[in-house]
Computed example of a mutant assay.
Amino acid sequence: MSDAANNKAMLKLLRFLSGGEAKVEGQGTPVPVIHRAGSRHALPAAVLAEAISRGLVTETQSRLSLAPPARTYLRRALAAREEAFLEQHGEIATAVREIDGTPQTLRVNEAESPLAALARLKDKGGEPFLPAEALAAGERLHADFTRAQLQPRVTASWQPRLSGRTRGERGGMADLADSAIAARIAVNRAIEAMGPELAGAALDICCFMKGLETVERERQWPVRSAKLMLRTALLALARHYNPPRRSARMQHWGEEGYRPGMETWPA
């Protein structure tokens, strides 16, 4: 049996046993069978023997169960399969993202980015339609929105006040981790910085991942207006995230060579 086939059979065995203890029949035969509550799974004897020898499966009186190391093995194997799928079907790139205030280099799937298609658009002069700072602002808004755990709870009627409580229930903030609370505050401030006229487009496209045409249809906007509204919103948001620095140099209206005199104030 090839290594790939062996690994596949091992995963099937461990995933079957993750549902609970199973009984094995046909020990000593080339293809023993394990079964539990009407479910049956046949596998090569060599795979079962390897699983037992590696401490992934324990056998007691012809009954099999997962050993603690099997959980780690399964997580790693499934993560490796997901990574291979992304490599084949995704658009994997390296990007710098800000996480909890610290820039970190991450591998991202641009095919899943809400701004991926817009990032490739050019204006009439051949320049990117969305400047780099606007793209970064949109990605940061999306990251804060996701970390704040808002998407499942937000209705079509968006209100800047993201927390609240009803009679007899705990407040929404009470059950959240500190990181989620901080993210909700960040989203609130971002909405206020963009203003109600622009925030809706940014939320729809960056957070709810709606297409431009969908946004225009739902909001009854003219054709090709959503991307302009989004660009304006994200540029305003970029200024909110990275406000321009003010010069610390003292300004005065005197001409060159001017020196202020000392005024004597009456006692």
Rank of each mutant, 00 (worst) to 15 (best):
E25Y: 07
A49Q: 15
L17C: 03
R97W: 03
L86K: 06
P103E: 01
G254R: 05
A119G: 13
E263L: 11
G164D: 02
A49F: 04
A116D: 04
R71M: 09
Q61W: 07
T60L: 12
Y73I: 00
S113F: 02
M173T: 11
E133M: 04
A117G: 05
R71V: 11
G168W: 03
R120V: 09
G20Y: 14
V57C: 07
V57M: 04
G55T: 08
G90N: 09
A182W: 10
Q159P: 04
N6K: 14
T72P: 00
A267S: 08
G172D: 05
L43T: 14
E263D: 04
R189I: 10
E91P: 00
A156N: 13
Q61F: 10
G261N: 10
R217V: 08
P69R: 09
F85K: 07
G257D: 04
S62P: 00
E255P: 04
P30K: 08
N242D: 15
R165Y: 01
G254C: 11
R36F: 11
P152I: 01
K124L: 13
H142M: 03
A95Q: 08
G101S: 06
I185S: 10
E213A: 15
A201H: 04
Q220K: 12
G254W: 13
R40T: 09
I185T: 09
R245V: 15
R231M: 03
W265V: 06
L74K: 12
Y73E: 09
M250K: 10
D175K: 10
A202F: 10
F85D: 01
V57N: 01
K23Q: 14
E213F: 06
S65K: 15
D144W: 10
G38W: 08
V187Y: 05
G211T: 15
A177K: 10
A186W: 03
T166N: 05
T166R: 12
R167L: 05
R217T: 10
L48Q: 14
G195S: 03
L162S: 00
G19T: 08
Q61S: 15
Y258N: 04
G19H: 08
F145L: 09
R54T: 07
A186K: 04
D178E: 11
E83I: 04
A201W: 01
E169A: 10
R239G: 07
L121K: 13
H89Q: 12
R184L: 00
L106H: 15
P152L: 08
H252R: 01
A84F: 08
Y241W: 15
A84T: 02
R239A: 01
